[in-house]
């Protein structure tokens, strides 16, 4: 009976939510960018006088006078325009991992969950795959500003390699202290670059490097550096998560 009422309630909420929102959400074809922040971010016209104007200059491969020229606009939003969010985000992850360690860390005695006879092929190939996967992860986050991907994605891939190692080899164990140092180090560097922005340019996390040309690896000023740091941090953090949950009493 309770379930029936739950279904009714949920459906009612769905009705009210949906029909309240839909007429105003202008989705699909009507969804236009003309007055949205997203358009300004795409045009890189934030600091212009009239930021919503339609621009016609060519950016890719030429631009070097716009305010940030990461070819990947999503990256430019994450790491530059809304970089404070990203700082908070990596800290959330960092803190959550700390909490997990605090909860689980004491109860186990340096053991880990063992699996029954890992497959031989997996076992053997994992050692070959590990550097490749890590390399791929690094590639993802180093190229975050010009191709799809970035620090979080790359970090996850690196952490996935750790997970793979845990599945493939029963005697594998992550050296989590090193990971912690890496985590802290990259977090600190993130902040130091941010503070350098204040010292040099006057605003927190403001770019003070050369912007380069859009589409080149060395472009976008601080963006690739910070994304690399984020990537390192995320890979360290997620590896630590794997380590903690693989621990056993």
């Amino acid at each position: 009976m309770k379930k029936f009422w739950a279904i009714i309630t949920v459906l009612l909420i769905l009705f009210f939510l949906g029909s309240g929102l839909i007429p105003d959400l202008k989705i699909y074809k009507q969804n236009n960018l003309s007055q949205k922040t997203g358009k300004v971010y795409l045009n890189r016209t934030v600091n212009d006088d009239s930021p919503f104007k339609e621009i016609d200059k060519k950016l890719y491969g030429e631009a070097n006078d716009v305010e940030n020229n990461a070819a990947n606009s999503v990256t430019s939003v994450i790491v530059d325009y809304r970089a404070l969010d990203t700082l908070g985000e990596v800290t959330v992850l960092f803190l959550a991992i700390t909490g997990v360690i605090a909860l689980l860390g004491k109860s186990k005695k340096n053991n880990r969950i063992l699996f029954e006879k890992p497959n031989y092929i997996l076992n053997a190939s994992s050692k070959i795959l590990l550097p490749l996967i890590v390399l791929f992860g690094f590639y993802i986050f180093i190229h975050g500003h010009i191709t799809p991907g970035g620090g979080f994605q790359g970090g996850t891939i690196v952490a996935a390699s750790v997970l793979m190692m845990y599945f493939a080899q029963n005697n594998y164990k992550l050296k989590n202290n090193r990971m912690k140092v890496l985590e802290s180090f990259s977090g600190l560097s993130f902040l130091i670059f941010g503070l350098l922005g204040i010292f040099i340019m006057g605003d927190f996390l403001q770019n003070f490097l050369e912007l380069g040309i859009m589409g080149k690896l060395f472009s976008g000023g601080l963006i690739p550096i910070i994304y690399i740091l984020v990537g390192l941090k995320v890979s360290a953090e997620l590896s630590n998560v794997v380590y903690e949950f693989m621990g056993e009493e």
Binding site: T91, V181, S184, F185, I198, F199, F204
Partner: peptide, 25 residues
Amino acid sequence: MINEPVLLIVIPLFAGFLIPIIYLI
């Protein structure tokens, strides 16, 4: 001296990131 409110957020974060390194020492 920098007078940015953002320091109020950054300084504790900095301390927070510093703690794991110090803890190992």
